[in-house]
């Protein structure tokens, strides 16, 4: 009987509370659905416009032909390859450095010291810095100034790597923090060092979360035009990059250029290039998800 008493109490109280609760519950749900609907409507409208305008112009010529003054035969070959090159450099730089920084901050840095907190805070602030600021930094220090690389693939890759590093670090830290403490304790108990524990237990367990962060970071990098225009990436490039010291252009810059042209054909081309950019992005994500799933099974 004593076990039933609290239950009875709550049953008696329930209708009174739930009347109010139900209203606020429902109101909250409606707000959520409206928010979701607005976000979805925006996305659908954007996609509809892009596909409606761009599909007629979409075709292999986009990645087979170089840009031309005639929209009917123009393509974006140099921009497609420029994008892939710059993105590869970005990934090679940002992924190891970002994961390394995250592992240090989570596994090695003294969590109670002011400087650790200060660094972590600054990384979070950096994630919110507008991309054009990275462009100015890149122009002053990497394209010109002390490093003086010029507006080449490597410069573009470095700028985008700097731009997305905070995202990689923050996401990787979250993923590493989500690894259960018992795993580390178990590893220590078996005599593993901190390095061994981080490398063989924590990092593999955190890979799915890290991979998600990397996808988000590269997805941001692929759509950037402003910082690359800032460092002096070109608009019309009639050849593919041949190395890290090649001049280049990327799809967002090409799209921006076409959008500004008065001929109708270029508007369609710009939309078609947007579709291509989306496809590249989805393929990249698919590869990352496939890698992640494969990896999860192995562990």
């Amino acid at each position: 009987m004593s076990l039933l008493e609290p239950d009875l109490d709550s049953v008696v109280r329930l209708p009174r509370q739930s009347a109010r609760r139900r209203v606020s519950d429902r109101a909250f749900l409606i707000v959520l659905i409206i928010s979701f609907g607005l976000a979805l409507a925006g996305l659908v409208a954007l996609l509809w416009y892009v596909f409606d305008t761009g599909l007629p112009a979409f075709g292999p010529r986009l990645w087979r032909r170089f840009p031309s003054l005639n929209p009917a035969i123009s393509g974006a070959r140099s921009a497609v390859f420029g994008t892939l090159w710059v993105l590869a450099v970005t990934a090679v730089l940002a992924v190891p450095i970002g994961i390394g920084a995250a592992v240090y901050l989570e596994e090695f840095a003294p969590a109670d010291k002011w400087y650790t907190r200060w660094i972590a805070l600054n990384i979070q602030n950096l994630a919110g810095v507008p991309s054009i600021v990275y462009g100015i930094l890149g122009l002053a220090f990497i394209a010109r100034g002390p490093i003086d690389l010029g507006p080449v693939v490597l410069t573009g890759g470095i700028i985008l790597a700097l731009l997305v590093l905070p995202i990689v670090i923050i996401a990787s830290r979250e993923a590493i923090r989500a690894v259960p403490e018992s795993l580390r304790h178990g590893s220590f108990a078996l005599g593993a060092t901190r390095l061994q524990t981080a490398r063989r237990q924590v990092l593999p367990a955190a890979v799915p979360g890290i991979a998600t962060g990397v996808i988000l970071a590269l997805s941001r990098a692929i759509g950037e035009a402003a910082p690359l225009i800032m460092i002096g990436a070109f608009t019309y490039v009639p050849f593919n990059p041949t190395g890290l010291d090649s001049k280049f252009t990327v799809l967002p810059i090409q799209i921006f250029d076409w959008i500004g042209r008065p001929q109708e054909g270029f508007t369609q081309l710009a939309a078609a290039a947007c579709i291509l950019l989306l496809v590249i992005l989805l393929v990249m994500n698919a590869i990352a998800i496939w890698l992640r799933n494969r990896y999860e099974q192995r562990w």
Partner: peptide, 30 residues
């Protein structure tokens, strides 16, 4: 590099010039 108004003119010139001079690599920024 330079004006985005003149850019398309120079890009057009570069495209036509490169038909007969494929080894001259011309890039145009805006």
């Amino acid at each position: 590099d330079g004006s985005s108004t003149v850019g398309p003119l120079t890009a057009a010139a570069a495209e036509l010039f490169q038909v007969d001079n494929p080894n001259v690599k011309i890039t145009v920024g805006t």
